[in-house]
Design a protein around this nucleic acid. Structure first.
Lengths: 152, 152
DNA sequence: GCGCCAGTTGACAAGCATTTGCAAAATTTT
DNA sequence: AAAATTTTGCAAATGCTTGTCAACTGGCGC
């Protein structure tokens, strides 16, 4: 059974290093044990956890990790553009790995679930509006808050 | 000169009570001295001040007003829909009087200035997107962060 | 106009999310 | 593997906001 664990294990437990580790290392960021744990959590999730939730998940992997380190790592990764920070509803910051394509968010006001979407037409309109106001857009934030439609 | 002061004075110093006072009173909200001061500040400004800034302006009118009261009043007015709360860039909440028409915001990342705008086409697209994802929009938040375009 | 009393206030403590100071521990450099 | 440097865990500190509570007051009823 020396072979099967690789197949059975999750992506995170497999021993080929994710490419983002190399990228970060090349950017002058040390890949320490706490950071690797946090990066694995972020890359292996579909949701948008906040610092406390990341901390909880991290502790279950390595109980010595501190909340401070989670916050420090989030700030570091955000500065490097590796993750995005959101404050839906003015609540605590929630994070997501910065994947290639930009997208906006639809937040279910009943469950807190987040659905990602993207609209080139809206993006285009935003550019036009900013331009007409004499500005260049550096970034933007579009959040739709809604509830799941009952029935059809 | 018993006549001219009315013309020269600002809207806030003129003695006809603003109609929003009556509206709030009818909604069961007592118009106290601190609240009147705060309401006057909100109705008389074009910008989007945060609690501390409102507090500073209020104190200059009535030095006995406390910061607690500013926060309490903002929460009250927000619940009643009389004002809107924004947390641009994840910073402290900034407030604006709820005027009739909905609008979105363009924030100057260099000065913090806020420009209001409105696009029916974007609103329409948002509805379409939410609908296609199976949701009804309850509210939304669109913030453009940009910098003033140099030259033409 | 005057008193009553629930609603409101100011002062200050407490709460929550996040940041920071610091000595110890881990990592990279030499 | 020792030196140089960064990162960590812990605890204390911060910034914004809400809660507590005795004192005060707006607005109705007389």
């Amino acid at each position: 059974m020396l072979v099967n664990w690789r197949i059975i294990g999750s992506m995170e437990t497999m021993n080929h290093k994710p490419d983002y580790e190399k990228e970060l290392r090349d950017a002058g960021i040390r890949i320490t044990r706490p950071r690797r744990v946090i990066l694995d959590i972020l890359s292996g999730t579909e949701d948008h956890p906040d610092a406390m939730e990341i901390f909880r998940r991290a502790v279950s992997v390595d109980s010595s990790i501190s909340l401070s380190t989670v916050y420090r790592t989030m700030k570091l990764l955000e500065e490097r553009g590796a993750i995005h920070r959101h404050a839906f509803n003015g609540g605590p910051s929630r994070f997501e790995q910065a994947s290639g394509v930009h997208h906006d968010h639809l937040i279910d006001i009943e469950t807190g679930d987040v659905v990602e979407f993207r609209s080139d037409r809206i993006e285009k309109l935003q550019e036009e509006i900013a331009r007409s106001l004499g500005y260049d857009i550096v970034h933007h934030r579009l959040e739709l808050y809604g509830r799941k439609r009952k029935k059809a």
